[in-house]
Design a protein around this nucleic acid. Structure first.
Lengths: 176, 176
DNA sequence: ATAGTGATTTGATCAAATTCTAATCATTCT
DNA sequence: AGAATGATTAGAATTTGATCAAATCACTAT
C-alpha cells in the first residue's frame, strides 16, 4: 500500500508530470529540462532523483551530460491497481462494532440504549450473546439475564424481539 | 492536463485511499468511515466532498445517513492516460534553442563561442541564417558576414565547416 | 594540473494541504 | 415545536513538499 501511495504522490505533481512528458518524447538531461520548463537545474535534479528512486526513470552518464530516460513499463498499470490494497485488512464492520460496544458499555453495563437503529442492533446483539442458541427461556430468565446489563430489562427484551434477535411464543423466548 | 493532475492529487493521499478502499467493499457513511479509520467526521467529510467534486464518489441521503458510493468507471483508465498531455505543447528543442541564443548573443553580437557542442551548433546555425542557401561565397564574403557577429571570424568559419553547416571547395563556400 | 561545465546536495523559505475543535445546518423522532 | 443526531463549514495549527541560491562534486578538455 505504501508503495502505491508513494507512486501516486510522485505522479501528482505538475513539474514531475511535465518532466515525464518531455522524457516521453525523448531522453534528455537536467539543464535542458530546466531550461525548457523555466526552472533551476537544482529543482529538476530534485525531481529526477525522486523519480529515479521510484524506478520511474533511469539515468546514465555520457560525455558531458547525465542522460535521463523513462522506464515505460510502469505506465501500463490501470488506476484500479493503484488504489486497491493487497492485504485484505480488518473488516470495517467489526471495527465499528467494537467501537460502538466500547462506547455504550462501561464496566460490562449498558450505559444507555442507542436510539440509532444500527448502533442499537449492535448493542442488542452483544447482550444476546448471553443467551444459548436453541434453548427456550421463560420471561423471568430473560429478564434476569438482561438485568445484568441494564435496569430496564423490559424495554430491551421488547427491542430484541422487535429487531428480530429473539422470538417469543406464549411464555417462551429463544434466540433466532 | 490540469484535470488529470487534479485527479492524481486526489488519489495521492493516504486517507482518501483508505476511504476509497472501504467504499470499494461497500457503500458507507461519514460517521462509520470516521470510526473505522480513527479520524473525526469533519476530516472524512472534507475528503468525501473533495472526492465528490471530482466525480469519484456520489452521495445520497437516506433516513439518517448520507450514503456515499463509488463511481467505479474512473478506475479503468491506464496510468499512461493520466501522465500524457493532450495538447502537443511547444517543442522543447525550440525553446532551448531560443534560450541558448539569448544567452550567447547580446545586441546581435556573439559574446562568446560556447565550448559545449550542442550549444555551439545552435549558435553556429544561428549565424548561418545570414547566408543564402545554394549561393557560393568567397572567403572574404564569408569573413565579412561572420564578422558582424564576432571578431574572430576565422575560428567561427572553421567551426561551421567542422560541424557540417558549411562546405568548402577551393576558394568557394556554401551552406549545406 | 587546472579551468570549465553540468549535476547534485544543503539549508532556508514559502505555499499548499491535512487535521482538529467548535459552531452551524439538516433531518428525524417524540 | 424541540430534542437528538449526523453532516457540514469555518478557522487555526501543523505538516509536508517544492523551490531557490550557494556550495560542492564529478567529469572533460586545455
Amino acid at each position: 500500500m505504501k508503495e502505491k501511495l508513494a507512486l501516486l504522490k510522485l505522479l501528482a505533481d505538475e513539474t514531475r508530470l511535465e518532466i515525464l512528458n518531455l522524457l516521453l518524447k525523448e531522453d534528455s538531461y537536467v539543464e535542458k529540462i530546466a531550461c525548457t520548463l523555466s526552472l533551476t537545474p537544482a529543482t529538476i535534479c530534485y525531481h529526477l532523483k525522486k523519480l529515479e528512486a521510484a524506478g520511474i526513470v533511469r539515468c546514465a552518464r555520457t560525455q558531458f551530460y547525465m542522460i535521463y530516460s523513462l522506464n515505460r513499463e510502469i505506465f501500463d498499470l490501470p488506476l484500479s491497481a493503484l488504489i486497491q490494497k493487497e492485504s485484505p485488512a480488518e473488516d470495517p464492520d467489526e471495527k465499528y462494532r467494537r467501537e460502538v460496544i466500547s462506547h455504550f458499555f462501561k464496566y460490562g453495563k449498558l450505559t444507555q440504549l442507542p436510539t440509532q437503529r444500527k448502533k442499537r442492533e449492535i448493542v442488542l446483539a452483544e447482550i444476546a450473546r448471553s443467551f444459548v442458541p436453541d434453548r427456550k427461556y421463560d420471561e423471568k430468565e430473560v429478564n434476569d439475564i438482561i438485568h445484568r446489563y441494564h435496569e430496564d430489562h423490559c424495554t430491551i427484551r421488547r427491542e430484541m424481539i422487535a429487531c428480530g434477535i429473539m422470538a417469543r411464543e406464549k411464555e417462551s423466548y429463544w434466540l433466532i
